[in-house]
Design a protein around this nucleic acid. Structure first.
Lengths: 252, 252
DNA sequence: CTCCGTATACTCGTAACCGAATATACGTGA
DNA sequence: TCACGTATATTCGGTTACGAGTATACGGAG
């Protein structure tokens, strides 16, 4: 048997779950997943599906039970779940439920680089985002209401409810930040504006310990470095918005 | 110039942002990012860094300004940000702030397949998750407090505050679900338990319209199919936990 | 009856990611 | 002074993801 590694691929796990209802060929698995609305929480791409299914077979989590063909269409392989596959599925779901996994949402990444945007412009961008979020929240609420009306058990709606809770939390956070930007209670707004408008990092912040620690990282062992970065003939280019960040260490 | 595509790679955007402070070589960019704690919101891997930097160069967002060497160490290329790169960075950050991007968090995926777990066991797994979440929340709160004490501007903490808000929301949601599982107010608990304990899908749900729509998806044009999946010699194997999901269509 | 859009079903070539390896240099402890 | 662990700095080979292409078949409209 091929060397087996832990399966954490969501599409792979979904394939195993669908096969618990009986053998199927890959395209049919995808069709069932989409029909059940699982494509909202699991990325389903045909390009990946066949590779994922082959990997599951190689790892012994599924096995081919035959190939059928209708006319001259591409033939299709029907797969069944193995006992190992069922165990792996259950073990992985347990693990994914009980242990948070470190992820890097793209909005969080963008927020960490948001200093490159003028604060007044940021307010407008957040307003746009909030509009879209509110539409998504309304749409998802509609989905939940419709499901309830059709007696779909909440067991099959947990991921939708969770997603809804997270969207609501993000909308709330965005509203709070917008409020602070609008009424001027967001601290250091003057410095942020000035930084964009003059292109120079404010002097009164340059002597804080984190700003100096920042500089220290830039200036490493001199014997090994090119001239210090940022030292160009253009005044003010150094310490542009987008850098001079905090040096606070965080636990991962 | 190479054909340019929109840059949405977070590491690429982070590289551009760091270069706003002046030219640097790749390893130094990574060091500065880590020093500023950006590795908490942006995945930084040396294996990807050099490829990403080369792609940025090919796309004209950065340009090499020279190669230096100290002793017999590997030589290193110093890169500078171009005007195109600065524009691309600002444009992409605007877009990522204003338009939510569809993502597939692994916990949401796991929730969509959670029917394979017995509800009593699920309660315990959620309790474990909640414990870890509360530790992470405490740790992140400590990071924020420490940063504030060191006069780090909140501008440089937005992604941490946002992350904190999202963790709190998830913890709240997990507590709510645990409460419903514990006090029995979660609907259909009996059916979920019975499904696991007998291995048979409850008869009273089998005639709901979504359950029948589910069956319809499984039974497609008969001329093209192998015998219906799940029809095996083992009684009860069809309709195992993990399938028989909702057929409610959601907007993407 | 014919044609065309869509459904069914699968695959390939390319791009991206990254773990682990490589090589030199420095600093600290014995 | 020497040795070793760690820092600095980059690269390679393997794996995964997937957009777009391929081919056959069906159903509806004209």
């Amino acid at each position: 048997m091929a060397r087996r590694r832990k399966l954490t691929n969501p599409l792979g796990l979904a394939v195993l779950a669908m096969l618990m209802g009986g053998p199927m060929h890959p395209y049919q698995i995808a069709r069932l997943l989409k029909h059940r609305g699982k494509d909202d929480s699991i990325k389903i791409r045909y390009g990946s599906l066949y590779t994922v299914v082959q990997n599951l077979e190689r790892q012994g989590f599924v096995e081919a039970e035959g190939t059928v063909r209708a006319g001259h269409r591409p033939e299709r392989t029907v797969y069944r779940l193995t006992d190992d596959g069922r165990r792996e599925l259950e073990d992985r779901i347990r693990e994914l439920i009980s242990e948070p996994v470190k992820e890097y949402p793209i909005f969080t990444s963008a927020l960490s680089l948001v200093a490159v945007i003028h604060p007044d412009e940021l307010a407008g961008l957040l307003a746009e985002r909030l509009q879209v979020l509110e539409i998504e929240i309304a749409a998802t609420t509609g989905v939940v209401d419709h499901a309830v009306a059709h007696r779909l058990p909440r067991l099959f709606l947990l991921e939708t409810e969770h997603g809804l809770a997270m969207k609501r939390a993000e909308a709330e956070w965005v509203r709070g930040l917008m409020r602070e930007l609008a009424d001027g209670t967001f601290p250091d707004l003057k410095f942020w504006r000035a930084w964009h408008e003059t292109g120079e990092f404010p002097g009164e912040l340059a002597d804080t310990d984190w700003a100096q620690a920042d500089q220290a990282v830039l200036i490493q062992r001199e014997a090994y470095h090119a001239p210090p970065p940022g030292r160009t003939d253009r005044p003010g280019e150094a310490e542009q918005p987008g850098q001079a960040e905090r040096e606070v260490d965080e636990t991962d």
